[in-house]
């Protein structure tokens, strides 16, 4: 009772150790709150954080992983490998980092690592099963980075959940994201405050799939 076909399937193959984790990639532009979200998910289900958060863009410059995160909803269990990606960008300007008080040398080093990070995130697109496309709900969603990201995932037939983050801020407009991308499930959350995370877990349970 209560176990649907997929649940049975997962259970059955789980018995034989065939169950593979779903590789859940967290993608998006820089500073939208990907690591804050990854930490929130990881904290909620494992009690541990996975990466460092910062107001300075390009804080995450190599892929951060947390394996075997078990999300339990009703009677369903899904196992995911969380993959927090470096932020995508079409530009990286070291002068931008000077504003945050970094030395010129540190800023240039950060910029070099940031460009490598973007390249790494792009490379990982062929190694993820499902993607959380995170957007900052206080910003214009129709950016080339968002459009290119979603277009790529569509071409690769990778399921996507759009996460409209930072809804705790007064100027957040998650509905603009819904209007911009009506063909995707959009879940408004505050990763920082942990708001509406249940709806996100429901969406993950509903849409997350292993790649064929």
């Amino acid at each position: 009772m209560g176990m649907n076909f997929r649940g049975f399937f997962d259970w059955f193959f789980g018995l034989f150790g065939y169950r593979k984790n779903i590789r859940l990639g967290i993608y998006g532009a820089t500073n939208v709150g990907k690591t804050t979200l990854a930490n929130r998910i990881s904290l909620d289900w494992t009690g541990e954080e996975i990466g460092k958060v910062s107001e300075i863009p390009h804080e995450t410059r190599t892929v951060q992983k947390k394996e075997k995160v078990e999300i339990k909803l009703n009677r369903r269990k899904i196992l995911i490998n969380l993959l927090d990606m470096p932020g995508l960008a079409t530009k990286v300007d070291y002068r931008e980092f000077l504003k945050y008080g970094l030395s010129k040398k540190a800023a240039k080093q950060r910029a070099r690592e940031a460009t490598d990070g973007v390249i790494e995130a792009i490379k990982w697109l062929s190694n993820v099963d499902t993607v959380l496309a995170v957007m900052d709900a206080t910003q214009d969603p129709l950016t080339q980075v968002n459009i290119t990201l979603l277009g790529n995932l569509e071409a690769r037939k990778i399921p996507v959940i759009v996460v409209a983050n930072k809804i705790d801020l007064k100027r957040a407009k998650p509905n603009e994201i819904k209007e911009a991308f009506p063909q995707y499930p959009v879940v408004p959350v505050s990763a920082l405050k942990g708001r509406n995370m249940d709806e996100l877990y429901e969406a993950i349970a509903k849409y997350a799939r292993r790649a064929k």
Partner: peptide, 24 residues
């Protein structure tokens, strides 16, 4: 979209102090 991503990747390879990248 694939070609656009390729353009971003190639841009990242070329970023230097005088060339921070592109807007598309």
């Amino acid at each position: 979209a694939e070609e656009e991503m390729e353009l971003i990747r190639e841009t990242m390879r070329r970023v230097d102090d005088g060339f921070p990248g592109i807007e598309v």
